[in-house]
Design a protein around this nucleic acid. Structure first.
Length: 870
RNA sequence: GCCGGAGUGGCGGAAUUGGUAGACGCAAGGGACUUAAAAUCCCUCGUCAGCAAUGGCGUGCCGGUUCGAGUCCGGCCUUCGGCACCA
């Protein structure tokens, strides 16, 4: 054994050993429970960063821990390999995206191996592999068959910089999620996946995701955005048309004073012929902050009141949500209120705050947060109808400063006056349905997922356009539609694939006449929506599908025939990744899983049983980024300290879900810990043997000195603590802290008696095993040096003896009136009366209570005694 | 505006069920070893008073419940995320 710890001398050696012994190879042995541990796969940008390191180290500890606890662990890694940066590299440096991507993958794979991560590389996938993206196309066809994939012309989010369409989820604060440029709107023919068909299930099953952070569930629910309300038809006066509106506040329907419809509502082009009005509509502001509208000249009839109300076109009404038309109630909706004020439209109050309904309302007066209802006269009104009391009031709308949007009691609302908002919503909805004015309806904020991208480096959408047959899906047996390699990427103008003549021109699968291919590719979020399923397949030689060549395509048959592998491994037991995917990737993956279930490939509804969202790695208070110049290079750190130190620091500095503040000195601290432990083992190298001398035989505690017993007890306590900390939300930081404590005690320990050696041996043996998931190379080296015959990964996780954990004597705190006044040492199991007696005997305590009357004495088992004096 | 976190020494953090606040680590200060430095080892380390024993105060702020509150309840403040014309 070497006298000094030199990471370079051991890390490569153990990585080669693990590889040679195929130690990370997945075992599918039905006699043992399975554990699927997954970390979000990276985009192969070129090099890994500290965020990746943290993510993958956390996952690796879990995988190794579960392995040692007897699980068959599936712990795979792959590459989210399609996407824009590869195309940008092509534009900038003239390198083909294929070459650029696979070279990056090769480099990054080596980086991950250098960290000692326990991946089964035989299950590696890259989404740009032909054998992988073929399945994107297959799923697309299945969805097309079921009506879940459809084509639609619509206004879409367009990023002028990326020159591509973005899904709603990919627009953040009006900007592109990738390049941060302002997103504009554009009318395009797009392919959509009907995620809305699963909106209800996606929402309901949120409540089954008990292993997910509440924050993420809240974000998912919020994004799906379910609203319950009614759809009501308003007839347009004088013509046969109807305007169908959606509202959740049917309790305010008597307060409707106008109708607002979206610019692109179908009635607009149908009804508006006047050039003047059309021009005005086009001039409406794009800025939703500025409420603007144009009067159509038409009136609509409120079916409940019979009132004629003007129909306006408003810039703030969304075509895509609900029916694209709303009933406007300015008294009870701030947006309608602003609009009404601007165009001098009437404001009719129909809801008053609940606690004021017995009072007579004369005016609304604005206060800081709401209206105050001022009482000017009293009347004995207990039995009179609210309607008569309120309808005669001259409510001057100029006195109203803002809308009252809360719930309350209805006034001026016909037969519904006097009801609470809550009751009225039910009663009015019933009434509307009975009378045939409309029906109850549910709307979701989530939109169908637009997946068309006008880019090259992605999965070709398997559709052919034939003049005679129209939109024709590529038959299954003709998959994959191969992404052609010969292409010129300029980054400007048309979609790159539309310039590849050999690709576009094909024949119609139906009529065999010449036809043209779809030239858009799929959103790369499609790729990442099911990769966790691909990892479940066995007997796959990853390299054969790596090179984008047609031959051996192992994924080809396996996805369907290996059904049993899918049902064995799915769902993922533990998923780990950044919070930034709380909506996009996780929602899409949940959607895909449900579709795959309905196709018959999966027998589960939710893909991820437990989700851990790890915090960011920050330095000097900010997220690491090149522009801030605060990045830390993993390669440099591994070179300087070794992977085990880097791993240890990442795990020790903060619990996984919190942000991690990078500290160069903290890294030194982790390094020091390993060095001290090495030094300890080296000092006793002759005396220690993990396979004998108490290594695996029971130590007879009754024959030990109290001194040795203390170390033995501490060892058992530490095994318990480390195990519990890992089990309890993966709090590795406290687990490592307790290993440090134990090591400190072991260093202070001297072998005095013959039995002491066995205790120290037991202690050190367990420190090494407990440390092995965190610092695997280091643990392997020490283990082997102390006579270990096999990898620590194949050793069982240490077990503690509950009897040995218990102390024989404990220190008890004595409080007087809740304040700490003394400490007593008592044997465990001492009776309460005896404890009290002992507490009162304590000199300091008796001093304090001298001359005072004792009112009460509280004894908390193995914690404290609290004496309450008068 | 709505939803969700977080607030504890100089710093990262610990305190698992309401029961000794500050584990573990970093930094800092003092000492040992050394010709010297690095490394290593030992000691101190919330704050105020005190030579000390010890005592007062202390987990963002105000109040409450309790024998006892970092932890529970009510009301604020600060801060970080997410959503934001969704009718």
């Amino acid at each position: 054994m070497q006298g000094k710890y030199v990471s370079k001398n051991i890390e490569k050696k153990w990585q080669e050993y693990w590889n040679k012994e195929a130690l990370f190879r997945v075992k599918e042995d039905v006699r043992f429970p399975k554990f699927y541990c997954l970390e979000m796969f990276p985009y192969p940008s070129g090099r890994i960063h500290m965020g990746h390191v943290r993510n993958y180290v956390i996952g690796d500890v879990i995988a190794r821990y579960k392995r040692m606890n007897g699980f068959n662990v599936l712990h795979p890694m792959g590459w989210d390999a399609f996407g824009l940066p590869a195309e940008n590299a092509a534009i900038k440096h003239g390198v083909h995206p294929t070459k650029w991507t696979y070279e990056n993958i090769d480099y990054m794979r080596e980086q991950l191996k250098k960290l000692g991560l326990s991946y089964d590389w035989q299950r590696e996938v890259a989404t740009c592999d032909l054998g992988y993206y073929k399945w994107n196309q297959w799923f697309f066809l299945k969805m097309f068959e079921k009506g879940l994939a459809y084509r639609n012309a619509s206004r879409v989010n367009w990023c002028p910089s990326c020159e591509t369409v973005l899904a709603n989820e990919q627009v953040i604060d009006g900007k592109c999620w990738r390049c941060d440029n302002v997103v504009t709107q554009k009318e395009l023919e797009q392919w959509f996946l009907r995620i809305t068909a699963y909106a209800e299930e996606l929402l309901n099953l949120c409540d089954t995701l008990i292993g997910w952070p509440e924050k993420v569930i809240a974000m998912q629910k919020n994004w799906i955005g379910r609203s319950e309300g009614v759809e009501v038809n308003f007839k347009v006066a004088g013509i046969g048309e109807k305007i169908r509106i959606f509202t959740t506040r049917q309790d305010t329907i008597y307060g409707v004073t106008f109708i607002s419809i979206a610019k692109s509502h179908p009635l607009v082009s149908e009804l508006i012929k006047d050039r003047d009005i059309i021009n005005k509509i086009e001039l409406l502001s794009e800025d939703p902050e500025k409420k603007e509208g144009v009067f159509t000249g038409y009136y609509a009839i409120n079916p409940l009141t019979g009132d004629n109300v003007p129909v306006w076109i408003s810039n703030f009404v969304l075509r895509e949500y609900g029916t694209g038309a709303i009933m406007a109630v300015p008294a009870h909706d701030q947006r309608d209120f602003d609009f009404a004020k601007k165009y001098n439209l009437p404001i009719k109050v129909v809801i008053v705050p609940e606690n004021s309904y017995k009072l007579q309302v004369t005016s609304y007066k604005k206060t800081v947060t709401s209206y105050e209802l001022r009482v000017t006269s009293k009347e004995n009104s207990t039995n009179s109808l609210l309607k008569t009391r309120y309808s005669s009031l001259p409510l001057d709308s100029s006195l109203i400063a803002e809308a009252y949007e809360d719930e309350g009691i209805l006034i001026d609302s016909g037969q519904f006056s006097g009801l609470s908002s809550k009751d009225a919503r039910e009663r009015i909805a019933d009434f509307i349905e009975v009378k045939g004015f409309g029906k109850r309806a549910i709307n979701y904020k989530v939109r169908d997922w637009g997946i068309s991208r006008q880019r090259y480096w992605g999965t070709p959408i398997p559709i052919i356009y034939c003049e005679k047959c129209g939109v024709v899906p590529v038959p299954e047996n003709m998959l994959p539609v191969i992404l052609p390699k010969e292409v010129t990427i300029t980054g400007k103008g048309a979609n790159p694939l539309s310039t590849v003549i050999d690709f576009i021109n094909t024949e119609c699968p139906k009529c065999k006449k010449p036809a043209k291919r779809e030239t858009d590719t799929m959103d790369t979020f499609v790729d990442s929506s099911w990769y966790f399923v691909a990892y479940c397949l066995k007997d796959r030689n990853a390299l054969s599908v790596m090179r984008n060549e047609l031959n051996e395509n192992i994924l080809d048959s396996s996805l369907i025939t290996h059904h049993s592998s899918l049902s064995y491994w799915m769902p993922v037991d533990q998923y780990i990744g950044g919070i930034e995917h709380a909506v996009l990737h996780l929602l899409y993956s949940r959607f895909f899983t449900k579709v795959l279930r309905d196709i018959g490939l999966l027998n589960i509804a939710e893909p991820f049983q437990n989700l851990l969202t790890q915090g960011m790695v920050i330095k000097e208070g900010a997220k690491m980024s090149k522009s801030k110049g605060n990045v830390v290079d993993p390669d440099y750190l591994i070179e300087k300290y070794g992977a085990d130190t880097v791993r240890l620091f990442c795990l020790f500095a903060a619990p996984p879900e919190r942000d991690l503040e990078w500290s160069d000195q903290g890294v030194e601290g982790a390094y020091r810990f390993l060095n001290r432990l090495w030094g300890l083992v080296y000092k006793y190298r002759e005396a220690l043997d993990v396979k004998g001398k108490g290594g695996n035989t029971q130590i007879d505690a009754s024959r030990l000195t109290p001194y040795a017993l203390r170390l033995l007890r501490k060892t058992h306590q530490t095994i318990k603590k480390v195990t519990n900390d890992v089990e309890r939300d993966y709090h590795f930081n406290t687990a490592i802290a307790s290993l440090m404590e134990l090591m400190n005690e072991a260093i202070a320990f001297d072998i005095l008696e013959p039995g002491d050696e066995r205790v120290l041996n037991f202690c050190i043996k367990n420190i090494i095993l407990l440390l092995s998931p965190f610092a695997p190379h280091f643990a392997e080296e020490l283990w082997a040096n102390l006579g270990g015959q096999q990898s620590t990964l194949n050793e069982p996780w240490p077990r503690w003896d509950e009897e040995m954990v218990k102390e024989e004597e404990i220190e008890l705190v004595v409080q007087i009136n809740g304040k700490l006044r003394g400490k007593i040492t008592i044997p465990v199991g001492l009776r309460e009366e005896a404890i009290k007696e002992k507490a009162f005997q304590d000199l300091k305590v008796s001093d304090y209570i001298k001359g005072k009357s004792v009112k009460k004495v509280i004894v908390v088992k193995s914690r404290l005694v609290n004496i309450v004096t008068g």
